[in-house]
């Protein structure tokens, strides 16, 4: 995986399943089509003459255009976004990183974990992946690892629970 300047040295990131990219692309396609259809409504109404003058024609065209550009931009970014997700298990803590433009790396000590969530949505289930989420006593800790293969997710959950038990600390 590509190294970012923000990355710590001497650390091997585990990356998420490539299937996650497909899930994201599917989701992106569905979402983009919906938005595009919605943004085309004024244009269609204008062209069919239901609305006679209110949105100027250029505005009616510009709306779906803008939505299209945004969708393409998000689509271009998607593979890099998915590639930028990484996690690394260290002795005392778990590192999670996200983001291409706004990058964020988080360290969650095992002893601080209050509970671990594993969530599977319908699309994710079809591809055999899951999303793991860590919770600490802080609401700001939104450490999420999406796109884990189901067995890896289960392994990680057990591993994290066991390590959390071993390094249990109070608040």
């Amino acid at each position: 995986m590509r190294r970012e300047p923000i990355d710590p040295s001497g650390l091997e990131w585990s990356r998420v399943s490539p299937k996650y990219l497909r899930v994201r692309v599917l989701g992106w396609l569905i979402g983009s089509l919906l938005w595009l259809a919605l943004s085309c409504v004024p244009l269609v109404l204008r062209l069919t003459g239901v609305w006679d003058s209110f949105p100027p024609l250029w505005l009616a065209w510009a709306l779906p255009g803008a939505v299209l550009i945004a969708a393409v931009w998000r689509g271009v970014l998607l593979p890099r976004q998915v590639a930028a997700i990484g996690y690394a298990e260290r002795d005392d803590d778990l590192l999670v990183r996200h983001g291409v433009i706004f990058q964020r790396t988080m360290v969650v000590p095992y002893g601080r974990m209050q509970y671990v969530d594993v969530a599977v949505g319908p699309l994710e289930r079809a591809f055999g992946i899951c999303t793991l989420k860590l919770h600490t006593a802080s609401a700001a800790t939104n450490a999420e690892i999406p796109g884990l293969p189901t067995d890896e997710g289960a392994r990680l959950r057990e591993q994290l629970s066991a390590r959390g038990q071993a390094r249990l600390a109070g608040l």
């Binding site: 990058q103 964020r104 969650v108 000590p109």
Partner: peptide
């Protein structure tokens, strides 16, 4: 130190 729950480092494009 012993009360830190977790840490995050964040960097946006301007920061970079």
């Amino acid at each position: 130190h012993e009360r830190t729950q977790s840490l995050a480092i964040e960097q946006g494009p301007v920061d970079r």
